[in-house]
């Protein structure tokens, strides 16, 4: 048993309406408590907006604006500029969005904010699809995964958002997982000390969307990390890659077996996914060694 190293001073309230067992709520609890009370936020329409809650309630202590799906990063930019004009530049501006609002419809606004290096902390809860609308594919959905709009399995690769953001040369990018909350808290803490655009992508296994048991969200996330499907790493200034471990990842079989969305795969399909993961891992090692 690992002791989670972060201070919970009640920034995330009980009574939120996440699905029972959802690891996104767990991640939000750590993020909001680590960000602290001197912050304002924007949520884009997604599971995270549902978890923050409906009018007139809010599960967060900091004020949140429920923005539009394509404009989370633009809204956050406006907030930061208003705070600067008011002499409150020390206030953190937090963006919480899903992968649809980040990889797809919100990418243009995110790219623009990143290009201007707006001083915002952007968190993408990546559950690899439009899970809040019942589970359709997004450009973050991996190859072969079954979704409501890819009943025979997705036929395209998951978009590599990290390298897209790295190409913007933003000061800080990280991946994180609810299976390692101390690491998540440490990355949020580090991001708070950096001026400019910070992007953290948190893997969120979606219980109904991925077909994962109610008590298996954290375990599935851990298998994603340990199998190299979703490795934990940081990118500083778009060029300095730092991996949490360079040990050879475990095979992906145990990760796939947790989920109904991969149940239809043949042995050849599974091997093709393993080959993709291996190639991505080799590339990551190469990027990390590239200094």
């Amino acid at each position: 048993m690992q002791k989670i190293d972060y201070c919970d001073d009640g920034q995330f309230c009980s009574g939120h309406v996440a699905c029972a067992g959802c690891a996104e709520a767990l991640s939000m609890r750590v993020i909001l408590n680590t960000v602290g009370e001197n912050a304002v936020g924007v949520v884009s329409p997604s599971c995270v907006a549902i978890i923050v809650g409906g009018h007139p309630t809010s599960s967060a202590r900091i004020p949140f604006q429920h923005g539009t799906l394509e404009s989370a990063a633009a809204s956050a930019s406006g907030m930061k500029r208003a705070l600067r004009a008011q002499g409150r530049d020390d206030t953190t501006v937090l963006c919480l969005a899903g992968d649809g609002g980040t990889y797809d419809i919100g990418l243009q606004a995110l790219s623009s904010a990143a290009e201007r290096n707006e001083d915002i902390l952007y968190i993408c809860f990546d559950n690899e699809g439009y899970q809040n609308t019942g589970g359709q594919r997004s450009s973050s959905t991996p190859m072969s995964a079954v979704t409501g709009s890819t009943p025979a399995g997705n036929t395209t690769q998951k978009k590599n958002l990290i390298e897209i953001m790295a190409a913007h040369r933003v000061p800080y990018i990280a991946t994180a997982s609810p299976s390692d909350l101390s690491d998540l808290a440490a990355k949020v803490t580090k991001a708070k000390t950096i001026r400019g655009t910070k992007v953290i992508i948190v893997i969120i296994p979606c219980l109904p969307g991925w077909g994962v048991a109610d008590d298996a969200a954290v375990k599935t996330a851990r298998l994603a990390v340990e199998s190299g499907v979703f490795p934990l790493f940081e990118v500083e200034n778009g060029v300095t890659y730092r991996l949490r471990t360079t040990e050879k990842p475990a095979p992906i079989a145990a990760y796939l077996d947790q989920q109904k969305r991969y149940r239809h795969l043949s042995d050849e399909d599974r091997q093709a996914l393993q080959d993709d993961v291996d190639r991505n891992w080799q590339r990551l090692l190469w990027l990390a060694a590239g200094e």
Binding site: H55, P56, F64
Partner: peptide, 9 residues
């Protein structure tokens, strides 16, 4: 700040 209010929820 500190109100815990959400806008346009």
């Amino acid at each position: 700040l500190g109100t815990g209010r959400a806008l346009s929820a």
